[in-house]
Structure formats: C-alpha cells, structure tokens
C-alpha cells in the first residue's frame, strides 16, 4: 500500500513537472532565446516542486527579451527572481507554520523583496495574524510604498499597523496614494508614512472613530498610474 502511495505521489510530481515544462515552453515560444527557455524550464521545475510560482520567472524572461537585453543578463535576472521568491517563501513559512503560503502570496513577497524589503520584513507582515489574502495585499502595498521611496522598515511599520488595525484591503491599497499626496505637500516619504502609521496604530488601540462618515479615499488607489 505504501509503495502504491509513493508511486502515485511520484507520478503526481512528474505530472506537475511535465505540466510546468509544457507551460513554460508554450509561453516562451518566440519570446525568449533557447538558452533562456531551457533555464526557465530548469528553474521552473525546481520552483514547482518547492511550491514557488513560476509566472514571475516567465515574465522576467519575456520582459528581458522585449527590452532587447542580452541573454546572459536575462539569465542573471531570472535567477535573481527565483532567489527572491525562495527568500519570500522561507520568510512566510517561518512566520506561520500552520498553513503553507500559496503561490500568489509568495509572488507578492517576491515583489516586496525586489522593492527593497527583507525576509524578516515579510515575516513581520505575515505575523500580523491576518488572513493570507490580506497579507498578500499588505506585501504588495509595502513593496509599492518602498518603490515610492518610503524606507522599507517604515513601509513595514505602516502596513503592519494598518493590518493590525483591521483595515480592509481597499484601505491598504489607498496607502500609496495617501503617501503620494503627503509628498506633494512637501513631506518626505518617511514622514508621510510615519504620520499614517501613527494614525493606524491609534486606530488599532482605540478602534475606528464612531462616525467615520464617507471614506476619505476611494476603494482603489487613485495614484497609479497618475495621482
């Protein structure tokens, strides 16, 4: 019985790897050099077996080709994306061993690392105890804040406080636009984030105001691509 189970499990892994290989070859057809296709297939198989998403690897290969980047440099960038996903996955697992992170959450963590966050920042956001979907949004928003120039530690403080305050994903998504508004008024990115973090921490301690009235910001960020 055990042998049968192992055989079925082995076949499952083989089928998964085969599916990943075919998917990668099809998606990169005409959009990457043969050596890059081979590299992404190799890394994609490894990623699939470790529960990492393969889409960011494919996207980076396609992007490099579209931008006319030499293959060697594309290969370096694809390997870097793999390493960032691996770091993000390890950080998420270290923070919450109960449920393994899904590929969407890991991809969000990989983006956050690209934007300047570190593994421990990812773990801190994951430890807020919020559902995985909210943590995923939090990781994207923290990365976006870092991309705006907010120091990564400050971005994590702000998003973490907002998550702990129970803010809805729509409120989290509005944070980059709010930071941009403060920057337009002359605040530095760090000052803008610090002010919002203080407000979120106060909300976490005392709860939202009894009569909030209409939300001050739309459910989706008004800023990108234009404020």
């Amino acid at each position: 019985m055990r042998r049968v189970a192992l055989l079925v499990l082995g076949l499952a892994v083989a089928a998964t790897a085969l599916d990943a290989q075919q998917s990668i070859a099809a998606r990169l057809s005409g959009r990457a050099s043969p050596e890059i296709v081979a590299l992404v297939q190799e890394l994609g198989s490894s990623a699939a077996s470790r529960g990492l998403p393969i889409d960011p690897l494919i996207q980076k290969a396609i992007e490099g080709n579209a931008k006319g980047v030499p293959s060697e440099r594309v290969a370096t960038a694809v390997r870097l994306v793999y390493a960032q996903l691996d770091t993000a996955a390890a950080a998420l697992r270290s923070a919450g061993p109960n449920t393994p992170p899904d590929s969407v959450e890991i991809a969000a963590g990989g983006f956050a690392i690209t934007a300047g966050l570190r593994g421990r920042d990812i773990a801190e956001l994951a430890r807020t105890g919020r559902p995985a979907a909210d943590v995923t949004v939090g990781l994207r928003v923290a990365g976006t804040l870092a991309a705006l120039g907010v120091p990564p530690a400050d971005a994590v403080t702000l998003v973490s406080a907002s998550l702990r305050a129970g803010q809805a994903p729509g409120d989290l998504l509005a944070l980059p636009g709010r930071v941009q508004s403060e920057m337009a008024r002359g605040a530095t990115p760090a000052q803008a984030a610090a002010g919002l973090a203080r407000a979120a921490a106060a909300q976490a301690r005392h709860g939202p105001p009894p009569d909030r009235g209409p939300p001050p910001h739309p459910p989706h960020p008004p800023a990108p691509p234009h404020p």
């Binding site: 980076k60 960038a77 994306v81 991309a147 990108p224």
Partner: peptide, 16 residues
Amino acid sequence: APAIDDGFGRRNSVLT
C-alpha cells in the same frame, strides 16, 4: 508612479 529596479539597469513602474 512608484518604480522598482527591473533587473536590467532600468526601472519598471508599479501599479497595485
């Protein structure tokens, strides 16, 4: 828009 390193020496804009 916010921007991050694209890994190729340029910047990508970010839309969340």
